[in-house]
Amino acid sequence: MFVTKAMTRDVITINKNTNILQAKEIMAENTIRHLPVVDSENRIVGILTDRDIRSAMPSILLDDYEYKKAGEKLTELLAKDIMSTSPITVSPACTIQDAILLYQKTRHGAFPVVEADGKLIGIVSVQDMLDETTKVMGIGEPGTLLCIIVKERVGELKKIVDIITEENMSIGSVLVSQCWAEGKRAVFPYLFSKNVVPVKRKLKEAGFTLIEPSQWYLDNPLEHG
């Protein structure tokens, strides 16, 4: 899935001459933490974050006189004085997976989405990435999670999906765990149903080992190996 599907399209932006107290207010009003800075052509020239603003605020350790003076200075401070001028941006062809990995690498909470000509078309935040992941996993929908232990060989997943399909059940998602006891994997189908007893029985009859997903989370595979 591409970031364009998850991103916010109506981006709230500022220009490089926006006063930072005003920028702070915009962030508070809209409960956002990233403000792309654009030129008159909507091309990105920088990004201002709540952290940039916090760092610019006078320290509470200053005495009254110094604090007041620093506060006055703030009224003259503009976005261009404290913004990052080389923000990490992504292209519309960037996938959600890319964005998640990029977040893991950079820890930046949001990435402006920018066309090849530098024009800003959206912003994708960690929140957006989580929302999409939640949808993909199906966890916002009512259902039941199973955990099936399979041998690492071709065709096992097909057998599982076939049995679920025969039972006329709707699959929300199927996650496959890569890290499991040697030669085995854990498959987690999330089924949109309360009534999973018959499908569990059929899977067992077909020779699959079913364990409680919670047992897998507790990382105790060998007991069931």
């Binding site: 929908e141 009512p142 259902g143 039941t144 999670l145 309360k194 999973v196 409680e212 997903p213 919670s214």
Partner: peptide, 10 residues
């Protein structure tokens, strides 16, 4: 039962 392990997930 904890919603991560049981219907309806709430």
């Amino acid at each position: 039962q904890h919603p991560s392990f049981a219907y309806p997930g709430t």
